[in-house]
Design a binder for these strands. Sequence first.
DNA 1: TTGACATGAAACCTTTTTGTATCATATTAA
DNA 2: TTAATATGATACAAAAAGGTTTCATGTCAA
Lengths: 129, 129
Amino acid sequence: MKQPTIQTAPTPPLDVVQGAFRALADPTRRTILMHLGEQDMTIGEVCTHFDMTRAAVKKHLTILEEGALISVHPRGRERINRLEPIALKSVADWLNHFNRFWDERLAQLQHAVAAEEAAKKTKRSKPKK
Amino acid sequence: MKQPTIQTAPTPPLDVVQGAFRALADPTRRTILMHLGEQDMTIGEVCTHFDMTRAAVKKHLTILEEGALISVHPRGRERINRLEPIALKSVADWLNHFNRFWDERLAQLQHAVAAEEAAKKTKRSKPKK
DNA sequence: TTGACATGAAACCTTTTTGTATCATATTAA
DNA sequence: TTAATATGATACAAAAAGGTTTCATGTCAA
């Protein structure tokens, strides 16, 4: 059924992308990332933002670390969690493969809206571009 | 309990983003999206690219549709699956919140590499890649 | 040293996910 | 009409996800 492709190394960051997408699938983890965007935080500090046991937050942080979205830095008995934007950028790069579709679709929508506006012909709202 | 807000639609992209991130977490579904980026496809055509039962592919397509990443258009007894880039763009927009971190971190890395190179000027033990 | 604090880790449970197999339905073509 | 086709839908099983509780370990501070 499946046609084997001949390319052997068109797979630069697949594991990285997979780990990052997996980590981003959970809303708690996305919220953690936004908090860490404000400042580095210990696990305890992250916990203060969630109604959840410390162990559960720790698991989320572990998955974020596995996805390379954060790094953990021991400082005494604490562990400082820091946002690591490189993996986030790899996700954004993957999404950018679809850039041209956004442009096409947005142009379609704008065109449709413009046609509708013209049909109404009541307002003179000028779409800025 | 207390819902003093009167807005009925203050949740513009939250559910959309969650549904899209959930759908993107699976590598099979990301591959499906790339195939649909090439052309619209029926379920059967999508199936030809995977070593998986038709029912499993159908479930993936359902999750992609729930995440608004694709739309399904009946044509006779077939269902044409079409990429819907708007939800993808909402994910990209969410990621762009971290844009400034990429810039900062990349600048840091470039600076660090430059400093290390300068410090290494005396050494010659560079392992081959 | 002692105790409080911050974390790590394991066992366990429930729900979701991801696949299968099977049967039902609607459409096309002969 | 009849049969093949394309899909929908349900029930099922294994694995992963997401949470809790409990206990152990290492560090700081008095």
